[in-house]
């Protein structure tokens, strides 16, 4: 199929950008969205034009590197899929597709469709881990976790950190990401010793980069891993307890 792409082109993070229209020809419907962009870049290179910068890594929906605002929907029209899992059979010959980078103050554009998501790394550094003594690996199932809790924690742990929640949020807030990263540890026994310190540090770091939640639920709708805003309530509860009970340290 042949498509018209309206793509955001921005040479540098500190220069203004604009949309440029491109024709891409001969796109097979089995191609993924990213393979379609690869094809476009090949055709641009053959014509001696500058290829479009976009990010990708695993291309199987587990790394969180790819992420584009496609026709006003994060990760495109399919539910619960990352951009790499969106396939061109979602489109028909002659379609026009608008492709934009994530837009939020916490995610400045690096170039074209690539944004700087290092603010997420700062949030993880603030509390997205557990401090464990090193040594031999503990036996499996040494610490019992009931099935319901394990399943719920796993739902939170499915977060791939793609940033669609921030991109979808009318406030540029990262509360779904932060909530998932806190809940996946705070729900489990291993996360308990640093539970409240984690909640306080993650939220205070998050708020240095991102906006605040107005409970609209756009993040949940955009999330390729279908992560629930229940985890935002989890974060809110643990932060409240951390602050009011003085259980946070440092």
């Amino acid at each position: 199929m042949d498509l018209t792409l309206r793509i955001w082109r921005q040479p540098r993070h500190d220069t203004p950008g604009d949309f440029v229209s491109y024709q891409v020809t001969g796109v097979p419907e089995e191609a993924s969205f990213l393979e379609m962009l690869d094809l476009l870049n090949e055709q641009l290179s053959e014509r001696g034009e500058e290829p479009v910068v976009f990010e990708s890594d695993c291309r199987e929906g587990i790394c969180g590197t790819c992420g584009l605002m496609i026709d006003g929907r994060p990760h495109g029209p399919w539910g619960n899929t990352a951009t790499c899992q969106l396939h061109m059979r979602a489109y028909a010959d002659g379609d026009e597709i608008t492709i934009e980078p994530w837009r939020a103050t916490g995610f400045p554009v690096i170039k074209d469709l690539a944004v700087d998501r290092s603010a997420f790394d700062r949030i993880i550094e603030a509390g997205g881990y557990i401090s464990t003594p090193t040594g031999a690996a503990p036996d499996a199932n040494l610490i019992p976790v009931d099935k319901a809790t394990a399943d719920r924690a796993f739902e939170a742990a499915a977060c791939i950190g793609c940033g669609a929640c921030v991109a979808a949020c009318p406030n540029g807030a990262a509360q779904l990401f932060a909530g998932a990263k806190v809940a996946q540890l705070n729900m489990l026994p291993q996360g308990q010793p640093e539970r409240y310190q984690r909640a306080a540090n993650v939220v205070d770091t998050m708020e240095a980069f991102f906006g605040s939640c107005t409970n609209h639920g756009e993040c949940q709708a955009a999330c390729p891993k279908d992560i629930s805003i229940d985890f935002i309530a989890w974060l809110n509860r643990d932060y409240r307890k951390a602050k009011l009970s003085g259980r946070q340290a440092g």
């Binding site: 309206r6 949309f19 605002m69 026709d71 006003g72 929907r73 608008t98 934009e100 837009r103 939020a104 103050t105 916490g106 554009v109 979808a168 949020c169 009318p170 406030n171 540029g172 807030a173 980069f209 991102f210 906006g211 605040s212 107005t214 409970n215 609209h216 639920g217 756009e218 949940q220 709708a221 955009a222």
Partner: peptide, 28 residues
């Protein structure tokens, strides 16, 4: 104060196209 913070966090860049999927009239 939260509105101001959220306007800054959202930034000046606007999506050319945006389809909201979840938010209702009351929320907006």
């Amino acid at each position: 104060q939260l509105t101001r913070m959220n306007q800054l966090a959202r930034g000046s860049g606007r999506y050319a196209e945006r389809h909201y999927a979840a938010v209702d009239f009351a929320g907006r």
